[in-house]
Design a protein around this nucleic acid. Sequence first.
RNA 1: GCCGCUGUGGCGAAAUGGCAGACGCAACGGACUUAAAAUCCGUUGGGCUUAACGGCCCGUGCCGGUUCGAGUCCGGCCAGCGGUACCA
Length: 851
Amino acid sequence: RRKPYPFDQIEPKWQTLWDERRDFHTPNPGEADFDSTKPKFYILDMFPYPSGAGLHVGHPEGYTATDIVARYKRLRGCNVLHPMGWDAFGLPAEQYAIKTGQHPAITTRDNVAKFKTQLKRIGFSYDWEREISTADPKFFRWTQWIFLQIYHSWFNPETQRAEPISSYSGNDPDSVRLAYVAEVPVNWCPELGTVLANEEVINGKSEVGDFPVVRRPMRQWMLRITAFAERLIDELEPLDWPAGIKLLQRNWIGKSVGAEIAFAVSESGEREAEREISVFTTRPDTLFGATYIVLAPENPLVRAVTTDEQEKAVQQYCTQISAKSDLERTDLAKEKTGVFTGGYAINPANGERIPIWIADYVLMGYGTGAIMAVPAHDARDLEFARQYNLPIRTVVAAPEGAESVGYAGDGIAINSPPIEGLPTAEATEKIIRWLEEQQVGKRNERYKLRDWLFSRQRYWGEPFPIVWREGKHESIPESELPLEPPPLEDFKPTGTGEPPLAKAKEWLRYSEAATRETNTMPQWAGSCWYYLRFCAPQEDQRFVNEAAERYWMDAGKPGGVDLYVGGTEHAVLHLLYARFWHKVLFDLGEVSTPEPFQRLVNQGMILGEDGRKMSKRWGNVIDPLDVIAEYGADAFRCYEMFMGPLQQMKPWSMKGVEGVSRFLARVWRLIMEENQAGDWIVSESVKEVDLTKRQLKVVHATIKKVTEDIESLSFNTAISQMMVFVNEFTNVEVKPVAALRTLLILLNPFAPHISSELWEALGRFSGGVGDITDQSWPEHDPTLLIEDEVEIIVQVNGKLRDRIVVPLNNSEDELQAAALASAKVQELVAGKTIRKVVVVPNKLVNIVAAD
RNA sequence: GCCGCUGUGGCGAAAUGGCAGACGCAACGGACUUAAAAUCCGUUGGGCUUAACGGCCCGUGCCGGUUCGAGUCCGGCCAGCGGUACCA
């Protein structure tokens, strides 16, 4: 099939030129050709994991959007930082190594090469001199260094900031470090031979591979992200992020405000001297309705409160529960189960003696692992109370029409003497004050967020810069960084939970008395700070050059990356972890802004032609290189942007690509024509002439629309407007060079190859010195868009009845008179009374008439 | 269950509270061609009416409301997609 225009020649030509001339290299402050008078713009993509499968059409969607903005900002005279790199540590390369014996470094290197070739073929204007890979020792040296900063820090509750551990005055620094070791129940995935973060477990299965995950206590490295919970919520507020993503993060952190209340144990087995059960509740105002206590089966207090008579039943229940998988335990459909411990506690509000139960609907991991059950006003407690015939007491009056039992909303307190008659908010305040006075309770906040389980039993990740001596951990000196993973023949998991690094006996031995930590960091580690490294990827004295960081991240401002584009799948994980690391670095004075990403945009997923998610299974996967081979990179880019709004999910259509390709071909033929010999030459119709008034209007309307649409990332409508432009000029006999040049500049961010080529072709005409990338973005002249006459919509009772053409800026009276003079209006209002006339200048007249 | 997003022609979509359907696809008709492809021109939400020009009615998931005027704002539903799941 004949190509509509020779994209197969011009695209490689320009890609090579851009590379050779370093067109998109951005100098840093202090470097030779740095221009400090220009404003800066840092525009970032979520860097890919270079999988063996290569790019799919989802990757270039966001990348094209950012590339358009980057090229646009350069034409507007900005210093643009637009880098790309590789999130190169990760499980697939390691799995592949296990299967084939090929070292992950080799696999990763090959995959990176493939990805890079593909990205270059799409014509992205990355500064490739800033390319980084998280698996490169020059990079992960600093990942390890940042881990050490975290390790050597603690969260000072007084200042609410991370501080060097030296400012901690207690006697057990290891208990407050931001990186610490804990024996915790973890998500152990036997198939993958590693533990996983809560966030990596979906429905009791591993996110990667969909393998079963079981709970099991193991010694792990944890990062104290919970210390930052409050700030991670508060400092989200001013960021220019989609509201939905902010909400998602807020919900994930899950702040609940309430009270912690102590219930004295009145009767129990008394195996240990436990005399109190502390519960957390968000509804202390319902304390008078607490008719029993429930402990989580794993709660250590269970042993102490259980009586001899109940011991057997309790033990049996706990055994039964621990055998269950997470999936079984959290199955909401199942009936609630539990068992009485034999113990009783005293409700501090009314002195009532209430039974202590255990049940698996209370989780050890949240709050205190114990609740006061208020069956009248909590659905779960109610279900349980009905199951086991426990008393139900109403203490909140439901609003008119609602059933009081089971009503969980706000209302008026009843059956609660000290707070009787108070609405929920006041009742809560008053009871908390009372609890605090009595010293049986206090105001409290809880978060769903857990500390971050940071170690993995894998080979292909950053080793911890930590050694163990006599059962205690200590850091290795910075001078020993990077600490590279040992060469290994056998990457297989050991199956015992001991990491594969333990097999490297030589490497393991640090000194006579010390051995290395054998866990590695999770894949998130590199992506937590890669955006900082891009500011100065060659810097070898520091994780980022200070001046470069201050410049690109906008020191002193709320700051950070000016535009960050990526998929929603990273809404909580990557974005939360990165914010956490950034805040630690900020507190320690290592970076100059409190937040990493000022503006965030999520691109929507691209579906297959059949409307389903693209997957090998459905055979609906589109390979970008196939599309480019047939239609060219410019058509590919423009189609991805023309499909619909960036943020929206949308299905692929090859017919749509063809349509956009036709548009580019029309642009080509606007300027070029084929001669007898079959060569493309500049068309005879292209001339240095003035534009007609009508042409001027189209040109300036297009400048306005395209400019505004790029700013608001509405690329689809920007392309529509350029199509309108091209339709307007397609059949004119003489095509003014000035109009064509303007179009080419506007089109350049979207279709950089064809616009560069055509710009060059117009070289012999005056008005365009240098390459298209050297031009500046046009400004529209609003006066050219103003008409002498405007068409006014005439409505009668809100319905369109006529249009009249009148001079611009007619007065309201003139408009009203003109509208009433319309024959159609006359006909419609005949015999009616005109009640009102609404006049919107230069727009419309609405006549309200009635009988 | 809870939270979020989305509902507009045959399809992808557009519309600061002011002409619903820009632009593109598909379809149909025409020009060019021996023919096809490509290209160019035209028609294209539905219905009724007119010989024709034209005219009329309906139409943005459903029901209500605010307004001179609602795809757009408010209230109540419904459907699809995504997230989350006993978080006290």
